[in-house]
Simulated assay, not measured.
Amino acid sequence: MQDKLTIPRWGLAIALCCLAPIAMADDELLDESQRAQKAQAELQARIDAADEATRQRLEELREARQETRRLDAYNDELEPLVERQAETIATRERALDTLAETRDVLPVVMRELVERLERFVESDLPFLRDERLARVADLETMLSDSELSQADKLDRILLAWRTELDYGREMDAWSGRLEGEVPLEVDFLRIGRVGLYYLTPDGRHGGVWKVAYGEWRPLDGEALSELRKGLRIARDQRAPELLSLPVSQVVEVVEEQGEEAS
C-alpha cells in the first residue's frame, strides 16, 4: 500500500494564508468589473440621451426654419398693406392739421347745404313737395340744437341729400290731390326727375308737368295709353318696358360731329 500524504498542520495554515489573498483579489476584480459595466451603462445612457436631445434640437431647428420661411412670405404679403396704412395715417395726420379750421367752417357749410337743398326742392318737379319741404324744415331746426354734435348734424344733412338724389333713380306711383280750380283725386306717376304725370281715375284725362312753363300740360291719345301702361309698371302690375311719353324737363340733344341726330 502506498503511504498516505501527510501534511503537517502548520503547512495547511500556510496554504490557507496563501489562498486568502487570491480570493480577495477575485472579489475585487468582480466588483471592478461590475463597476465598469455600470459606468459603461451610464455612459451609454448619457450618449443615448445626448443623441435624443440632438435629434430634438435638429427637429426644432427644422421647424424654426420653416416658420421663418412662412414669416418671410407673410411679411412680403403685409408689406403693401403696411405701405397703404402708412399713406392713410399720413393723410389723416394732414387732415388733423386742418381740423381746427374745418371745425370753424363746418357750421357755415352745413347751413349752406340746407339752404341749397331747400332751393333745390322748390325748383324741382312738384312731387311730394310738402314732405320734402318738411324734411328741410327739420334740418333747419336741427342746426340750432346744441345737444347734437356736429358729426350727427352733418350725417342727417347728407342723408337728406341722399334721399333727394335717390328720387332721381326711382319710378314711383301714388294717389293724391291735384290742386287747381277744381281739385281732383288722381294717380301720379314719376319717372326719376325726367317726367311727372297724372291720370284721372277714369283714365280719360292726364297731363305732364312742364318745368319750362311751371304748369301741367294735357296729354291725349297714345300718350294717355302709355301713361296707363307706366302706372301699371310702377305698381308691379306689368313687366318693365320702354315708354313713349313727353318729358317734364328740357332735354338738350348734343350732336356729335359727323353724326346725325336720331
Rank of each mutant, 00 (worst) to 15 (best):
G214T: 08
T200G: 00
V194F: 11
E226A: 10
R217D: 09
I191Q: 09
L184T: 09
L154E: 11
K153D: 08
A212V: 12
F188A: 05
E222I: 12
L231T: 02
L227T: 03
K153A: 06
L196S: 04
S175K: 09
R193N: 15
E222W: 07
G207W: 02
Y197M: 02
Y213T: 13
V182A: 14
L165E: 15
R169K: 13
R232E: 11
L199F: 00
R228E: 10
P218T: 01
R232V: 02
W174P: 09
E170A: 13
G195S: 05
L199A: 02
R217S: 14
A151G: 11
E215H: 13
R228S: 11
L159C: 07
E215G: 15
E164C: 02
D155K: 15
Q237C: 03
D236W: 01
R177H: 06
A173N: 05
R238C: 12
R156G: 14
K229T: 08
L178T: 01
W174S: 04
Y198W: 13
V211P: 06
G203S: 01
G195W: 06
L227D: 06
A160Q: 07
D166L: 11
Y213S: 11
I233T: 02
L189P: 05
A173Y: 02
L224N: 00
L154Q: 12
I157Q: 08
R156V: 15
G230N: 06
L159A: 12
A223S: 07
L178I: 05
D236N: 10
G195Y: 02
D172V: 15
G176I: 01
A223R: 08
Y167D: 12
H205S: 13
D236S: 11
L178M: 00
G206H: 00
G192W: 02
G214S: 05
Y213V: 14
V186G: 03
P240Y: 03
L224E: 00
L158H: 10
A234L: 05
S225G: 12
A212N: 09
Y167G: 12
R217W: 12
I157M: 09
A223K: 06
T163A: 14
K210F: 04
G230D: 01
E222F: 09
E164G: 07
K229I: 03
I191T: 07
Y197A: 03
E170F: 07
E185P: 00
E185T: 13
Y198N: 04
P240Q: 06
G221R: 03
L196I: 07
R177N: 15
A223E: 07
D152C: 03
D166H: 10
D155P: 13
L159F: 09
Y198K: 05
R217M: 14
V182E: 14
A239I: 10
A234N: 03
R193H: 14
Q237D: 10
V186H: 04
R228V: 00
V186A: 05
G168M: 08
L178R: 04
A239S: 12
D187F: 01
Y213I: 10
Y167N: 13
R228G: 12
G207C: 05
L231M: 05
E181H: 05
L154T: 13
V211E: 15
R177V: 15
